[in-house]
Nucleic acid binder design. Structure first.
Length: 535
DNA sequence: TTGCAGTCAATATC
DNA sequence: GATATTGACTGCAA
């Protein structure tokens, strides 16, 4: 149905969301026969016929920079790039090479940043824009991301961490060189990877890059080279600045002296970073527990009482919600991998909801067990979070939890002060589950909400209780199927079968149906006999 | 307008 | 010095 709709009434590109664009990218790649052959070979049919049509679309793609539009970072690759992006077998080759063979990350990553030692390397202020992948593949990374099978983000980060620590390579270097991210982001990413299915296209990119990097047999060597180079440059700079007698002002700071003003005033202009005092944080956390989505009024009051800017309070709530969400992902992952001990591969994909636990330090104060959103229509949900896995949320809660949560809200769901109406449900922890006392000012600020919080739908876990690992893994058919495109892609990434369905009865049914379809496909493929489909 | 994802970058901690 | 934390920001989607 979706296909029919899409084929008969395609939306203009500009009107499409990222997700909405994905099918078109896929179609384009498919239409672009050779690419399709290279990227999604049907097992056992690699030499099979390839469709060659729609060059017009392909042209459009090239000229209109379809791919790059989704990734401004690489827009350069859109222009008739040296390697004629997107066309023909070359890109196929590069794609394949990228993921399967040593990928040319390092040298190429420095294209925009020539490795000459004279060039103050990344260590200087501008960690930006590395963009690791080779020029000819800059476009391909997007394709890869779009086409990528479900990657085991947790496993990838784990391996990356291992490699980095084993070889004494820093996150900064790795981030700037390979991922195009700063140290903090890398640290965050490595420590708290989100499960693949919760990531946006953009969010997936670093993981694809990491995977590619891991696949590169020379990855360490190359990074070591970079390290040496950086060191050399640093020494050189240092040496020259010392010999210049006048210790040159901190070249760092990243201030553009070019703007006329001297660095000094600029420095002064710099907004000092707000650091919240522990009491303030505590107060905010308590307020959060009362009301994860406070009204502007509440925010205002909180800000006043805590003597903070409202924007700070707003930011704090945003960040806190978001970070709590991630903490939960981690728990899911860990629970998932524990639960399935050995079945290894894609814990991140599984999102098995484990018993909630206390949050990590970054989100401390979140000890509360999450409660279910009882009887809720579940219509709401964070864009990425729920939108990507609404079913997960739907089935999220353990019965026991449900039972607990139910009474809290069932009676007066409508009593919510409406602040939350139509909003994404609050996350993980929440008042309902662990009604923390709110003794102080924050409590008062949240008071108006607090009154209702007991009856308001309680925060919900993003992906609570799902079936056990075994069940999960059985939800998808075996990978031996000869005709499974994703498998081929996975093989490109050197990955095992992706995790699939999270379970609930409906999903199980679907999975069973899928199994049967695939089974028939397999049989058909092996017998090479036509089948009639009746799904 | 609001919430979120993703990220930066200052700062804290190890 | 490397890594972790976290307030702020940007861009996007609903």
């Amino acid at each position: 149905g979706s296909v029919s709709d899409m084929l008969s009434r395609p939306k203009p590109w500009s009107k499409l969301t990222q997700k909405g664009r994905e099918p078109f990218i896929r179609m384009q790649l498919w239409l672009n026969g050779e690419l399709g052959q290279g990227v999604l070979p049907v097992q056992g049919q690699q030499q099979g016929p390839v469709l060659h049509s729609a060059t017009s679309l392909q042209d459009a793609l090239q000229q209109g920079c379809v791919s790059s539009e989704s990734t401004p970072k690489t827009s350069a690759s859109c222009s008739p790039a040296p390697e004629s992006p997107m066309s023909s077998s070359e890109s196929v080759k590069s794609l394949t090479e990228l993921v399967q063979q040593p990928c040319p990350t390092i040298e190429t990553s420095k294209e925009g940043k020539p490795p000459e030692s004279s060039d103050p390397p990344a260590s200087d202020s501008q960690p930006t824009t590395p963009l690791p992948l080779s020029g000819h593949s800059a476009l391909s990374i997007q394709e890869l991301v779009a086409m990528s099978p479900e990657l085991d983000t947790y496993g990838i980060t784990k391996r990356v961490k291992e490699v980095l620590t084993d070889n004494n390579l820093g996150q900064r270097l790795f981030g700037e060189t390979i991922l195009g991210l700063t140290q903090g982001s890398v640290s965050d990413l490595l420590a708290r990877p989100k499960p693949w299915h919760k990531l946006s296209l953009k969010g997936r990119e670093p993981f694809v890059r990491m995977q590619l990097w891991l696949n590169d047999p020379n990855n360490v060597e190359k990074l070591m080279d970079m390290k040496r180079l950086e060191k050399k440059a640093y020494m050189k700079r240092r040496h020259s600045s010392v010999s210049d007698s006048q210790p040159c002002e901190p070249p760092s700071v990243g201030i553009d002296y070019s703007q006329g003003a001297s660095p000094q005033p600029q420095h002064q202009l710099k907004k000092p970073r707000v650091v919240l005092a522990p009491e303030e944080k505590e107060a905010l956390k308590r307020a959060y527990q009362q009301k994860p989505y406070p009204s502007p009024k509440t925010i205002e009051e909180l800000a006043t009482q805590l003597n903070l800017k409202t924007s700070t309070v707003i930011n704090w709530f945003h960040n806190y919600r978001s970070r709590i969400r991630r903490e939960l992902f981690i728990e899911e992952i860990q629970a998932g991998s524990q639960g399935q001990a050995g079945a290894s591969d894609s814990p991140s994909a599984r999102s098995g909801r484990a018993a909630p636990s206390s949050e990590g330090d970054s989100c401390d104060g979140v000890e509360a067990t999450e409660a279910e959103e009882p009887g809720a229509t579940k219509s709401q949900g964070g864009p990425a979070d729920m939108a990507t896995a609404p079913a997960d949320r739907e089935e999220a809660t353990q019965p026991a939890e449900k039972a607990k949560a139910q009474p809290l809200s069932s009676g007066t769901p409508a009593q919510d002060d409406r602040e939350d109406a139509g909003r994404p449900r609050p996350l993980p922890e929440g008042p309902a589950a662990a009604p923390a006392p709110v003794p102080n000012l924050a409590a008062r600020a949240a008071g108006e909400d607090a009154a209702t919080s007991a009856t308001a739908p309680a925060p919900e876990a993003p992906g609570a209780a799902r079936a056990g690992p075994a069940e999960r893994s059985s939800a998808l058919p075996s990978t031996s199927a000869p005709a499974r495109r994703p498998s081929s892609l996975q093989s490109l990434f050197g990955l095992p079968e992706a995790a699939g369905a999270r379970d609930n009865p409906v999903r199980k049914k679907k999975a069973a149906n899928l199994n049967s379809i695939i089974h028939r496909l397999e049989k058909a493929a092996s017998r090479e006999e036509p089948i009639e489909w009746e799904f």
